[in-house]
């Protein structure tokens, strides 16, 4: 069946749900605690309040919550080869998370804890440092400098370690449209000041706009250098490759030397 004909599943995610579709009770508690270290609670809500655990549980439960319908009233029912491929990836993620929980617990136990979820935050952060193989990330400061180089990095969630995948999923669960189970009541958008749409449907029918956040007024003559509304060369006889010329004479409109 073509992607264009995928039907709608009448599914909704309640961020306050107690129902677990994938995680065991222990796995739920562990990943909820881990998510709270990825995006902690401070003066602003973090992953715990935003119900990221629900987002991740639903995502791992199968392929029914992969794509919301465009208007957000349900989810798309994948078919055919796309469903097969998505299910295979989903199975890999299920296994990755199950093993990831065991790994977090093992590292906590090594530190004398009963498990990861019951350890204090400082210990949980130490476990993160160990499992990630890197120090706890430091702040992006205005008084530092670094250069970067482009590299092959996809935007999908495959091909990464458990820890990198967890951090990515927590971020996605925190900031995605609430239809996916996280970002409860748009609280994450409020943390960063993103004026998001009330619903996905609003982005389709013209009721959502970001126009108030553009410049209010403007004058191109003030904003731009060398702007001359009349200066359009319309001479097809121009043969000079680098500058426009006007019938052999130096072009009046070419203002650069």
């Amino acid at each position: 069946m073509s992607k264009s004909e995928w039907k709608k599943l009448e599914l909704r995610i309640d961020p306050d749900t107690k129902e677990k579709l994938f995680f065991s009770d222990h796995e739920w508690d562990t990943i909820e605690a881990a998510a709270a270290r990825v995006i902690p609670t401070d003066r602003d809500p973090g992953a715990r309040e935003a119900r990221v655990i629900v987002f991740i549980d639903r995502y791992l439960s199968g392929i029914n919550y992969l794509y919301a319908t465009a208007d957000g009233s349900g989810f798309l029912r994948l078919e055919g080869e796309e469903a097969r491929a998505a299910r295979a990836r989903n199975n890999d993620f299920k296994r990755m998370y199950r093993e990831g929980v065991l790994a977090l617990d093992a590292l906590a136990v090594q530190r004398g804890e009963k498990d990861f979820a019951s350890a204090d935050e400082a210990t949980q952060d130490l476990v993160f440092v160990e499992i990630s193989g890197a120090p706890k990330p430091s702040h992006v400061r205005l008084d530092e400098h670094a250069v970067f180089y482009s590299r092959l990095q996809g935007n999908t969630d495959t091909g990464k370690s458990f820890f990198e995948t967890l951090c990515l999923h927590v971020r996605q669960g925190f900031y995605s449209d609430p239809v996916y189970g996280g970002n409860k009541d748009q609280m994450a958008w409020k943390v960063i000041g993103f004026p998001g749409p009330k619903s996905l449907k609003d982005t389709m029918d013209g009721s959502y706009t970001t126009e108030p956040y553009f410049a209010e007024t403007w004058d191109w003559s003030e904003l731009l250098l060398d702007y001359d509304p009349s200066a359009i060369c319309i001479y097809p006889t121009c043969t000079c490759p680098s500058k426009t010329t006007k019938e052999g004479n130096q072009c009046q409109i070419s203002k650069r030397s």
Binding site: D42, K136, L168, V191
Partner: peptide, 12 residues
């Protein structure tokens, strides 16, 4: 930054 308060502050 991909986790911790540094990650949250980078967004804020």
């Amino acid at each position: 930054p991909i986790w911790g308060d540094a990650a949250k502050d980078a967004d804020r």
